[in-house]
Nucleic acid binder design. Sequence first.
DNA 1: CTAAAACCTGACGTTGACGTCAGAGGCAAG
DNA 2: CTTGCCTCTGACGTCAACGTCAGGTTTTAG
Lengths: 123, 123
Amino acid sequence: MRIGELATRAGVSVRALRYYEEQNLLAAERSPSGQRHYPDGAVDRVRLIQQLYAAGVTSRSIADLLPCVVDGQATPELLDRLSAERDRIDRQIGDMVSARDRLDTVIAAATANWRTGQRCRPE
Amino acid sequence: MRIGELATRAGVSVRALRYYEEQNLLAAERSPSGQRHYPDGAVDRVRLIQQLYAAGVTSRSIADLLPCVVDGQATPELLDRLSAERDRIDRQIGDMVSARDRLDTVIAAATANWRTGQRCRPE
DNA sequence: CTAAAACCTGACGTTGACGTCAGAGGCAAG
DNA sequence: CTTGCCTCTGACGTCAACGTCAGGTTTTAG
């Protein structure tokens, strides 16, 4: 599969894929003319990369952690980094849940104010 | 309270506070000589701003939403924006939970491999 | 065979939330 | 009064994950 098809199937831009290669997140075979060719599994790998980005993991960390995420092998140091990243994500989830709850409270209060207080236009 | 004390008490940098003012998130009284002076409530307000930033809300959105978060009043449009922001945060929480679960799985698998497989050095 | 579409490298542009530095003024203590 | 810390306003620097453009080659469709 060439880069355009992978981009479409994985739902990212061609530029992003070249960037991933630059960051050592995604290798590619090259045809004699220099074009990139990917195996089918690349689609899942790109989705995995996206998932980690969405969780706030940096390219650097992804590059370190991807190998063992893929094949389940890790040194003790890597296990530490995995746990550290996991804990960071966990804390961030907590922060976001508090923020969401706060917004929920505000929405409830503002809706209540809206119903009990003025209606459409002040009169 | 002057800017340095607020920064310390709220746990942010002085630069951040000036930036918040620039973004219309945090107003300040000025002394005759031009120095900023804040009331005690500013500490909580800064913490609130930080909480929203941590949830991925932009300065622009915070500026729009802060008034009604503070006093519980909102127009229907603002209620829509509040809900939209809430839903965005909710989706992001979902993404992060998946990522965390994925890392948990990897950690469990790698730990198991570590115990059953090679021990310290291959022999 | 040719034109369009896809691909290549290299390099500069973007955005958000600040960091950092320069140069100048303000304020409490000794 | 002066020493030392705090504050002020600009204004440029940073970092990550790409976007975008230029200029050229390759592949594909007709």
